[in-house]
Design a protein around this nucleic acid. Structure first.
Lengths: 387, 387
DNA sequence: GAGTATATGTTGCCCCAACCAACAAAACCA
DNA sequence: TGGTTTTGTTGGTTGGGGCAACATATACTC
């Protein structure tokens, strides 16, 4: 009971950034005195601060403002083909620092662990001794067994059955939580981005490694029996023989390919921004044709997800945002054509808001989860290494 | 707190049919004395009975057995093209009686309400005066806005924007809860059938009106923003131009059609049993070809759902069970081919267990839901009409 | 600027509901 | 028959949220 209420209050503080005590009372339904008690406990635990926020928003005594502590932090790790990115995120969901370490070749798991460990050690040095660390969240472009943090298959990285969690935990002495990158992105957009407040969300992310997805069902992350759920890129939408990065044919991922766009623009590699500029300014018929084909395929995929999930929002990320921006009406029309009238009527299709920070914010959430669910028993690690 | 614990205990009694008090203590984690208190409250509320079950299962004092009361009942209504079926179900999930009223033509909503009202009145007469009614659950072959029990579209019945819930409630004086038939079927199989105990389930049902579906995600029914979620039949799996009953092309429903099978067997109409007999005993090449094509399409659809939901079980119902039985290996191979290695490894494909009773049991669950979630405040209606 | 209305923080007390410990009861075993 | 084990029962304890009364800080009114 107490644990549950503490958790609810801390989550509100965490997600909203800062809340007044009166907001807490009204949305939890708990008594003023109870909220007072809970907040002071959270303050004592070092998770929140109370300040006399100069809100002056109306009649009556102004309510105290509760803000999440910046003394509680998590690290985020995102191994990619060409780089490993490490970030430092506070409990308030703010990314304090990001370090991107370019890698010559597609890194092995060992190399990635080493790179991340070094970067984390550096970041750790800069931390204030009063700060405490919740853990490390890792975003993997591939399938992850969440229960024991094992990467089952990450096609681009060439990782198979890699116990990344235990490796990184061993190297850093910190608790590690690993999950699929798109699932993490979905959670981030729901908690802090374009899907904030929605209970039913479909998220589609496309990068150089294919299409990933995630879903929020009734407010909860879709995980599935082992944590592989939400592979929305590997869903069959046509009879095409083109195969995706996992060898499945006719899937969304096989038909909406970043490489095809790079090819038509004669680019070898490009950032999403560079690619977007080409897309939005193109006058080539050939490029337009390919773009339209991809938009139609994307629309067909989204339609299916609208029928399946009846979501309030479909969030696009990666270069899918460029497809959407190129011809929004075409995409929306395709969605409309392919989905049931009732299911589509409330759905909003929009681009993600978090951009580059998505995975940093989201991965950190993994590490904060335990703390948020059970604040009083949270195991935080002091900045100074204990050994 | 109290409400929550009462709810948990009553749900266990409801789902397991009968439980010993010691089982309740161990699986809830509550104290013996607390369980004793909760059970006696449920007994006083008239939802459960305690008996000295002659279990004699081991050393120690034998635990009392708690069984759900047969004095609490719900009605189930299932309007179809050729008939409206009404059932009487107890809190223990047992179907006491089923009345199938054949309808000459596809009934209007008014006709269906009238038929159901009459049948319910008849059943009500036979009830014991000590019994109480939780309400009426309605299974609709179409899309239902759950919030206000409005049938948005039921293609076979030709119903559009029909406020079936309020109509039936008006006519009977009982609370009415309406939902999609396949969603209801899914819930029934999870609570009492082949998917019992699973947290992640995909359910596919096929009848004369097309393919419906449902899903359980992390133990919760997939409903979506408005309750239209789980339309698993209307998902695009190919480029075919054949359209389904909702006008969408290339969908699972458009490729796995009961009518095509009836046609090849030169049947005009048939029960699922009759159709199954033809299928299992056929030696026709043409029929085999069609069956294989449908099995492959079904396999492709299931593959997608395995990738999306990473379920523990995929449950088939309606004539899909016949397809599965005709060539189980072919279907399983198709699933294997089309889905990700990690996602497919734990999944079980099996037929539903509840058969004809599925919708009766499941629809009644809708009416029991409020009672199960808040036993102490449940509003039950006595058998005798109050007015 | 004094008085009033409104909203919130604070404090002490109450009460519900789960827990605990001790005892009783009903099975099995030697 | 007595010992062991498991469960039901009872009375007392305790944790934690609710409540009422009071204090405090703002806006509004004249």
């Amino acid at each position: 009971m107490r644990q549950h209420n503490l958790s609810i209050v801390l989550q509100m503080i965490h997600f909203y950034g800062s809340v007044t005590r009166s907001q807490l009372t009204s949305s939890t339904g708990l008594n003023r005195s109870t909220i007072s008690d809970l907040v002071s406990e959270l303050e004592q635990l070092g998770f929140a601060h109370e300040t006399e926020g100069a809100s002056a928003s109306g009649v009556g005594r102004p309510s105290l403002v509760v803000t999440p502590s910046t003394n509680v932090v998590s690290f985020s790790v995102h191994p990619e083909v060409d780089a490993t990115t490490v970030g430092l995120v506070t409990l308030s969901g703010k990314v304090i620092k990001t370090v991107r370490v370019p890698m010559g070749q597609s890194p092995t798991a060992e190399q990635s662990v080493q790179t991340a460990t070094n970067a984390i050690a550096e970041l750790r040095k800069e931390l204030d001794p009063t700060q405490r660390i919740a853990g490390i969240g890792v975003a993997i472009p591939g399938q992850v067994r969440v229960s024991d943090n094992v990467v089952r298959l990450a096609p681009q990285l060439g990782w198979v059955e890699v116990p990344f969690g235990s490796m990184l935990s061993q190297a850093t002495g910190l608790p590690v939580f690993v999950d699929n990158d798109a699932s993490i992105g979905c959670m981030a957009e729901r908690n802090f981005g374009a899907a904030r407040g929605f209970l039913d969300v479909v998220y589609l992310f496309a990068g150089s490694g294919g299409i990933g997805g995630g879903a929020i069902v009734n407010g909860q992350q879709l995980r599935g029996a082992s944590g592989y759920g939400g592979e929305l890129g590997h869903v069959r939408i046509g009879d095409s023989n083109s195969v995706d990065y996992s060898g499945l044919s006719g899937t969304l991922e096989s038909m909406v390919r970043r490489d095809d766009l790079l090819h038509v623009f004669k680019m070898y590699s490009a950032t999403d921004q560079e690619l977007d500029q080409e897309i939005q300014s193109t006058k080539s018929n050939e490029a337009t044709k390919i773009l339209r084909k991809q938009i139609d395929a994307l629309g067909a995929g989204i339609s299916s997800y609208v029928n399946i999930f009846n979501p309030e929002a479909v969030i696009l990320a990666g270069f899918l945002t460029s497809l959407f921006n190129f011809d929004p009406d075409r995409l929306l029309d395709a969605v409309k054509t392919g989905s049931l009238k009732a299911a589509q009527e409330r759905v909003v299709v929009r681009n993600g808001e978090l951009g580059d920070e998505t995975l940093m914010v989201g991965a950190a959430e993994l590490a904060f989860r335990g703390l948020l669910e059970n604040p009083s028993d949270a195991q935080l690690v002091p900045v100074k290494k204990s050994r």
